[in-house]
């Protein structure tokens, strides 16, 4: 606690701790991550090695990017539950179109549903003021329907995972997963956008206090529409990466990543009410969840138990942040 100089003396330890947590959410998160890795090492001595690290990173990266979508939307007080469907659609379309199309064309076709769904989400939330959760859930249902129809039309031509995606998803160079080539620029871009661009500022401002943003001349619908399109695009790209990792195009490819992506953002310190948080925390949150999943698998915790745990984490972390914010 080096920064207590500016705070009044005689503040109770609990309060100081809470304030510290609010100021530097990353430090307790990193500590938690290290503890989890240590537990893993104790349970399975020798498991933590170079290969394990690369593998963890490979699985954490798609989750981290999708959690980036959640982070951005949650900063405005929203959520994007359609990321799973969007990622799946992009992956599936890419895998099936690459068979007959030029890669560039296939890529553009794959990103099309992402843009469309993002646009519909953005208009629904920004203009019609539908609750983001309901809106994105609805578009994800429609998207799944389209995907099923689409599947029929391509059933004859079959599917193929492009070599490049294969390389990107699973390849490891000098001990580093190739996926980092995609992830590092994306992460840097998101962090830069949130901190150093007008758009990023507006995301925080709109989520913190929409009225204040409005009084400052911000047009809500513009920000929200752009945001959901961006979120969908990211989800689409994640789908391409994920198909390279999983290598089996299915109609529920990225669906299992949706709830963890919300949990990762929440654990990472992004407030589900908006206005507070950042992407670095989310990345650590995604790492924590990936390690936790490994740990739970080792402990033979069933899928159901994991979901319960995620749900409780979301609830408790949200309630805790609420207390921290109310404390002042």
């Amino acid at each position: 606690m080096t920064d207590t100089a500016t705070m009044p003396q005689l503040v109770s330890f609990g309060r100081r701790l809470r304030r510290f947590m609010a100021d530097r959410p990353l430090i307790p998160l990193i500590i938690l991550l290290i503890i989890l890795v240590a537990i893993l090492q104790v349970l399975r001595p020798g498991i933590v090695n170079e290969r394990w690290l690369a593998n963890t990173a490979k699985f954490a990266i798609p989750l981290a990017i999708l959690a980036g979508c959640q982070t951005m939307t949650m900063l405005t007080g929203g959520i994007d539950l359609s990321v799973g469907t969007v990622a799946t659609m992009s992956a599936f379309i890419m895998a099936t179109q690459i068979v007959n199309q030029d890669p560039t064309v296939a890529f553009l076709l794959a990103m099309m549903p992402a843009v469309l769904i993002g646009l519909v989400n953005g208009i629904g939330v920004g203009v019609f003021r539908v609750h983001p959760l309901i809106m994105t859930l609805g578009t994800s249902l429609i998207g799944t329907g389209f995907l099923q129809v689409y599947q029929r039309t391509v059933i004859a031509s079959g599917a193929r995972i492009p070599d490049f995606l294969n390389w990107l998803g699973t390849g490891v160079t000098y001990g580093f997963p190739n996926a980092l080539l995609l992830f590092v620029p994306v992460a840097v871009l998101i962090v830069f956008m949130l901190n150093r661009t007008g758009f990023g500022r507006l995301l925080y401002a709109v989520g913190d206090n929409e009225r204040a943003a409005r009084l400052s001349g911000v047009r809500y619908w513009q920000v929200i529409t752009a945001l959901y399109v961006l979120s969908s695009l990211l989800a689409g790209i994640t789908g391409l990466l994920y198909i390279g990792l999983i290598k089996a195009p299915s109609l529920s490819l990225a669906e299992p990543l949706v709830l963890p992506s919300v949990a990762a953002a929440v654990i990472g310190g992004t407030s589900i009410f908006g206005g507070r948080g950042g992407y670095t925390g989310t990345i650590i949150g995604a790492l924590i969840l990936t390690v936790l999943t490994t740990l739970l698998t080792i402990l033979q915790m069933p899928e159901g138990g994991r979901r319960i745990l995620f749900g409780l984490i979301v609830l408790f972390v949200t309630a805790a942040y609420l207390r921290i914010v109310e404390d002042r």
Partner: peptide, 26 residues
């Protein structure tokens, strides 16, 4: 009690109940 908005509480409960359902029947 938690004063967390209904939408978040019931979302968390969605995860929990789903998990519980999977525990009851895989």
């Amino acid at each position: 009690v938690t004063r967390v908005p209904d939408i978040v509480v019931t979302l968390a409960m969605l995860f929990v109940l789903q998990g519980a359902a999977l525990l009851v029947l895989g």
